[in-house]
Design a protein around this nucleic acid. Structure first.
Lengths: 270, 270
DNA sequence: AACATGTAAGTAAGTACTTACTTTTAGAGC
DNA sequence: GCTCTAAAAGTAAGTACTTACTTACATGTT
């Protein structure tokens, strides 16, 4: 297997074709998928031509069709790889699919949940999501195209990721209601308010209020996460539990806080 | 009129062409714009062909280009007409542009704002927005395409509609903070939580959780509006003002309530 | 007759995808 | 080391079809 130094292919749309040498099939397949992902996320499925993809990848059009039978298959492989995995249709060969985002989250907030540190739970989730969106803006854009174009894997993504996140957080809210910490609101209403804030925030910053200098609500991810969690928790807190923090262990919120920190560091690495 | 059997190409979506007779230019222009809007919102700018538009409008392709110089001009005219108005470029001839959504809202909540009936203010805004989104799903979809495709009028829409809505609600929050009714949070954080809930709710129902039977958070617009407003208001209420309703006039919420009612009736008509 | 509304049949430049062919490279046998 | 070779990686130049947009001409109403 000839492992090849990947030439830096991240620039303006049509790109002057880098001096790509020969690659082994797996590398080339992955490179095409990455380049295509960038273009698809920028201009949508229909707006991206196979010729453009070939140019951007520095190869001829024919080799795209050597690696992917159709443009649609290339598209689907990318989506599939990025967490809509339908198990079948191995995406970027060999690669065992990304670690599911939801599992990362579960791990991050497990301690805080056990400790019933509500603020840490929601802050951590919010911040982790915001950072994930910022790290992978391409995929966020792609997701919107997928939804608009009604690609069949859109439904899979929803069910495998967002729906389970709703159930995960909704379950926590329900538990805390049983424990008397939260008042009696529809748990999914609470989750919608929370995820609505977070996702809307990312989407606005990505799609509408793009210029950071002109932004109407200009905050760091950390600050935004704190505010969203704070408003939500006060909004659903039981009357007797006034503070926004945990009712049971107001001082010991180190676990949740540490998780947020870890997450921050992890952010730097990419 | 020689009706011709069009060779079967595109199949289902483009519609079997209605028996449109002769029209005066203005009517035709408007009809084309409406049909095109439907198709653009469904498949995006690049995904919609002028041939499809012509078929769906029941005319030949050439007359589209008699009324609109280019496909892009047709697209822009539609967007412009739907509230991104840049004054110039008369959209659908003669027609004086839709009444700005934000002004409708201002009128609807004016009384409730004066009465400082917070719940009525936010409930009315939420419900009116949710209903507007439901009535005009085509435009919501189109907006997402506009944002993704980075159409220049997207910025105009943001500034003329969403931005002013943020400022409008943010201003109200600030005022209520001064009055001691709301605690000291960033007003735009509060608005983001609120509009995030509302817009995310519409977007989810439109794009992701489309099947009403499977929906994860299944409520009427009225109920959703109530819940979002409720969580937000408790979330930002000052400590001493415990209840979610107005601090000053807890009983007299008739004004805001009446507005919500009127709005509801309007919903039924579609 | 005049003029606006309409059309059938183009055109040139794409579009996804193929074909027929050349180059590179791993690795066996010497 | 060296050649030889089979398979894989690559390409140039197509194919059949679609695209936005045009042209030359027809029809209906005043």
């Amino acid at each position: 297997m000839t492992r090849h130094v990947e030439n830096d292919t991240t620039a303006a749309p049509p790109q002057p074709a880098p001096p790509a040498g020969r690659m082994c099939a797996d590398d080339r397949r992955r490179q095409i998928a990455e380049v295509a992902m960038r273009l698809f996320s920028e201009r949508g499925f229909r707006g991206t031509t196979t010729k453009e993809i070939a140019q951007a990848a520095g190869v001829s059009e024919a080799i795209i069709f050597r690696h992917f039978a159709t443009k649609e298959e290339l598209y689907t492989a990318i989506i599939d790889y990025k967490g809509c995995g339908g198990e079948a249709a191995s995406p970027v060969a060999g690669r065992p699919e990304q670690p599911p985002f939801i599992d990362e989250l579960r791990g991050l907030v497990a301690d805080a949940m056990e400790a019933a540190d509500d603020l840490a739970v929601f802050r951590t989730v919010a911040q982790h999501m915001l950072e994930h969106h910022e790290e992978d803006t391409e995929f966020l854009r792609l997701l919107m195209y997928i939804a608009l174009e009604k690609h069949s894997l859109g439904q899979v993504f929803w069910d495998k990721n967002v729906r389970v996140l709703y159930e995960f957080l909704g379950g926590y809210v329900r538990r805390r209601q049983r424990e008397g910490a939260f008042r009696d609101v529809d748990p999914y209403a609470a989750v919608r308010v929370f995820l609505g804030s977070v996702i809307h925030h990312s989407l606005v910053n990505l799609l509408w209020d793009r210029d950071p200098a002109r932004r109407i609500f200009r905050v760091t991810n950390e600050e935004a996460a704190r505010q969203f969690a704070d408003v939500l928790l006060r909004g659903i807190a039981a009357k007797d539990a006034v503070g926004a923090g945990a009712t049971k262990r107001p001082a010991r919120n180190r676990e949740g806080g540490a998780d947020v920190k870890n997450n921050r560091d992890k952010n730097k690495k990419r």
